[in-house]
Amino acid sequence: MRLERSCKHLDKIENIGVILRPQSPELKNVYFKIEAMFLEKNINLILEENSANMIEKQGIDFDTLCKKVDFLISIGGDGTLLGLARKAFKYDLPVLGINLGTLGFLTDLSMEQLPKFIDDLLKDDYKINPRMIIEGQIKDKKFIAFNDIVISRKNLSTMLEVRAKIDKKAFNTYFGDGLIVSTPSGSTAYNLSVGGPIVYPLTNAFIITPIAPHSLTQRPIVVPADFEIEFKVTKDTGAVVIIDGQELYDLNKDEIIKIKIATKKSKMLHRSSRDFFEVLSEKLRWGN
């Protein structure tokens, strides 16, 4: 399958929606600095209402914001960007992440790089990368994930038994603490920390990685994203489904969670010079 390396560019750059890291009123001065940089280029910033209230400014509700702006900016870290990417998905808006955290696999733009990026933005020198999104469903409850869907045990003293099907055919039974179904974008998150593979972020694939499996034969596997995957917890030991580390749903005995690729992609706005392999080398200190 040929990879989609870039979406079309923005039609215009006049109004930008801004979401700040929650519960971080200390970002007020940072926001004013960013606002000044864009206003100098005659670009307006509009705050989402919760972010605005946090720094004692005026803002508008998220749905109205998305109808007014050309793209969105997340100011914080990867967690802030993840939450925004899911909320913005239905509006088909590109999202730019300004990194104020430490690791930043997704939010690659620093405050020091922002002035040049704004100039490049106005010169049409940037890229919008399409990122695979997972759709999940438990009974009539539907949700999406940018990074991963995790099935985890509730009780530390018990082991999960999870039966898996791929395209309606029995595939595996997992015994252990749980498992992760990750997108390529999420392969450098929880998946990486439990020994799963790193997958190039513009690939269309699911990464299924067991967490503390009770058998050496249970290994991570990468499968094409055109499969539909089902999981069922077969014992009444208590399980929870975690979406991008931010949303939780109970998964009861014999309930099925269905997972498939979304029909459209999330859009991530990046510097044209951003290179995934350079990010890996920097963040993971490869070669040091």
Rank of each mutant, 00 (worst) to 15 (best):
S215W: 05
D120P: 01
T209S: 15
L82G: 11
V150G: 01
A85I: 05
N50F: 09
N15R: 14
R274T: 14
I166R: 06
N29I: 14
A170L: 13
H214G: 01
G101M: 05
I151H: 01
E14N: 12
L45Q: 07
I134V: 13
E4F: 10
P220V: 11
I144H: 04
T107D: 01
L39F: 11
I259C: 12
S74I: 10
I229M: 15
E112Q: 09
V233P: 05
I73H: 02
M111A: 03
L93C: 11
L156S: 10
L103Y: 05
I259L: 15
I138M: 03
K141E: 08
A36I: 12
E4W: 03
N172S: 15
E228N: 10
I144M: 00
L84V: 14
K154V: 10
F277V: 14
I46H: 07
E112L: 13
P220L: 10
K168V: 06
W286S: 05
Q113V: 03
I207S: 00
V240E: 04
S193T: 15
E135V: 12
D108Q: 08
D108G: 12
Q246P: 07
K168P: 05
V18R: 10
A239K: 03
E135L: 14
N129K: 14
G59A: 02
I211A: 03
E228D: 04
I13C: 13
A239M: 13
I13D: 05
